[in-house]
Amino acid sequence: PVLPSSDEYIKHPLQNKWALWYFKNDKSKSWTENLRLISKFDTVEDFWALYNHIQQPSKLGFGCDYCLFKDGIKPMWEDDRNKLGGRWLMTLNKQQRHNDLDRYWMETLLCLVGESFDESSEDVCGAVVNVRPKGDKIAIWTSNCQNRDAIVTIGAGYKERLCLPSKPLISYQSHDDTSSKSGSTTKNMYSV
């Protein structure tokens, strides 16, 4: 009999182990109680096994989030690996929930698990999708808002990957500015 090559037996290892989190907004519980770890994976095959098994973001209820973070990093500003960082933020209009949200989220996940930003991927902490009545958001979180070169590489590569037009720009905001803002707008540190 012809035996399959060893490549067909072995799962493809990822550079990092990743953890997928789910947030469901239940007002009777605390923020941390509403955040649940779904599963961890460190191979391409296990990533798809999880992805194919769960709801797409457009099917989630309002107030829900998915967060995919490197193992050991909690999806919150306060984590040591996040507290000096920030996020590339993409805001979607209501129509895009039907047209773009699920596709953008999948591309975001592929950028992360595939380490698409070369050496700059080391700055990536994770990604978050927020499903909200006013418009959904997808963000890539990075570890240090002062690492301009890595952040701009990630932002430009991300925009290209999503096939976004050159305008409007997408913007990067530090978690420090986001958490301390007094109005509805946060200072943009970088834009691409």
């Binding site: 067909e8 493809h12 550079q15 992805y51 592929l110």
Partner: peptide, 20 residues
């Protein structure tokens, strides 16, 4: 070696069941 996978490779694995 850094383990990088491009988009097409990853998508090609989506519906392949791993043998192990």
């Amino acid at each position: 070696d850094k383990k990088q996978y491009d988009r097409d490779f990853l998508l090609g694995c989506q519906f392949i069941t791993a043998s192990m």
